[in-house]
């Protein structure tokens, strides 16, 4: 992919995925650059969620999933990495905010604690830093012992982002992180993405094309049709894909001719 600049962090080569006998994702080859936001767009059922769940091997939780091809993280085959270690390096924020039924503090400290950190002061530091990075600190600093479930939807999602940041991943996957949120909360998340990309490589799935155009540096467009289920149509810098798509399908989709 000629337009990607900077170091490439994630790369798929001829990657395919089946649910049982059903091929949900056809051969996909693309490079995801580091410290950029890459958006995955496309209609529902085009395999975009399946695609990003590849990078932290979340698809393996579904029985009957098979994959082929290569997926590299910093040049290493992710299927050879220990899956637990991979998931620490590649964090994920889910569509529906899913804080644990624990306090705000314990939610953020969850990952570091699970990874063996016991030092209270160090934990407190990490919690504060992560909450600050997730732009939530000012709102919750006085009641860190409140349940994470007591927060608003947008705050919950930022808590989940903080929770992900606390384990210091290299990549953050976001699966439609704002689809369950109101416009103001969505805006907050989008602003946050811009500051996060300085330190992290971000891959975001969204069904909202304006969002993709607003926040992302690169865009990959996936499609599904009667002949082939999920497959990649086009990938390139967001400005180019949106203003001057090479494929007719992309143009049709972006201009809203079908959804």
């Amino acid at each position: 992919m000629e337009e990607t600049t900077g170091a490439c962090r994630l790369r798929t080569i001829g990657y395919k995925l089946w649910y049982g006998d059903f091929c949900a994702l056809h051969e996909t080859t693309l490079d995801i650059p580091s410290n950029r936001i890459t958006a995955i767009i496309g209609p529902s059922g085009c395999g975009k969620s399946t695609f990003i769940r590849t990078f932290n091997r979340m698809n393996e939780l579904i029985p009957g999933v098979r994959v082929a091809g290569e997926v590299l993280l910093d040049g290493q085959d992710i299927f050879r990495l220990d899956v637990v270690e991979l998931r620490r390096l590649v964090g994920m924020v889910f569509q529906k905010p899913n804080p644990f039924p624990k306090t705000i503090f314990d939610n953020v400290a969850y990952g570091p604690r699970a990874h063996g950190l016991r030092d209270r002061n160090r934990l407190a530091e990490i919690v504060e830093k992560s909450l600050r990075s997730a732009a939530l600190w000012d709102e919750v600093k006085d009641d860190l012992s409140k349940s994470g479930l007591a927060l608003s939807g947008g705050q919950q999602q930022r808590l989940c982002i903080a929770r992900t940041l606390a384990v210091e991943p290299e990549v953050i996957l976001m699966d439609e992180p704002a689809s369950a949120l109101d416009p103001i909360a969505t805006l907050k998340i989008e602003e946050l993405l811009q500051t996060l990309k300085k330190d992290y490589t971000i891959v975001i799935v969204t069904h909202n094309m304006q969002q993709a155009a607003r926040v992302s540096d690169f865009t990959a467009f996936f499609m599904t049709d009667e002949n082939r289920s999920g497959h990649l149509i086009e990938y390139g810098p967001t400005s180019r894909v949106f203003t001057n798509p090479r494929e007719k399908t992309t143009e049709d989709y972006i201009s809203g001719r079908f959804s």
Binding site: D82, E85, A114, H115, V167
Partner: peptide
């Protein structure tokens, strides 16, 4: 990017 207290160090014992 391996901060103290993060993954790699204790993965073995967690696996065990």
């Amino acid at each position: 990017m391996n901060a103290p207290g993060s993954g790699r160090s204790n993965l073995g014992s967690r696996r065990l």
